[in-house]
Amino acid sequence: MNAFLATVRISFRRQLTYRAANLSGLATNLMFGFFRASVLIALYREQPSVNGLTLQGAITYAGLTQAMIGYLSFFHWYELMHTVYDGQVGSDLLKPLDYFLYWLGVDAGRALGTLLIRGVPLFLVFALFYDVVLPLSLLQWGAFLLSLLFALLISFGWRFMVNLASFWTPNAIGIGRFAFGLSWTFSGFFFPLALFPDWLAEFSRLSPFGASVYIPIQVFIGNVSGIELTKSLIIQLTWIVILVILDHIILNRGVRKLVIQGG
């Protein structure tokens, strides 16, 4: 456990040193937040609410997705792949810390650092320009934070699996592009899922992608509560369990293959 926390801490600190990059990323995500909010405003015009989503909720949605991009890193993450291709993987596998936990630690540190210096400030600035919805109770804040943590675990589980493809093929980047395209498509990053036709929204919500992006936002803007909230968190937990198990099965096979071929 100590080794895991140390990994998180180191990775967190390193993330904090990329100040210029984080500032630049923040400005970019913020601008995209403005673009999306403008489009939503133009779509809603006079309608107060569409399919249970208010305009204010939709605008908050646009700001939150941009604030979460860096944290979840759902669409672009090839770090593990690079270590496989440059041979670093060998010494990583020999670390006393479990390989999955090691990368989870690295990623958790990165995610927390990004959230702190990029995500939170972005949303605060966004809130200066637009009237946003905020959680009303301490319980709702708590549920949101829990859901946000689950979201990272789902996102990591998915990215870890995609990156493991590099154990088998020298061209895993192509697979990554496709896989991250999928998560980008069905996560609801682009538009609030509530505005999609119901079948598509439901499909996305049940997928690990929607579970990672859509659910925490729904919790934040108060669109799910009570039983619905519990259900949402259970969907998230289910995906975490499934992905962690899959990751370990694939990892074991990959390591065996790597060992047999001598890396």
């Binding site: 489009v39 779509l43 999928l182 498509t185 682009f190 598509l200």
Partner: peptide, 27 residues
């Protein structure tokens, strides 16, 4: 595969936008 996936994924955004627009008629 790469060409097709980029076609479908990029195309999805337009389809998603189009499906959204059904609820609003116009922008």
């Amino acid at each position: 595969l790469e060409v097709l996936s980029s076609l479908l994924i990029q195309g999805f955004f337009f389809v998603a936008f189009g499906l959204t627009l059904i609820r609003f008629d116009q922008i």
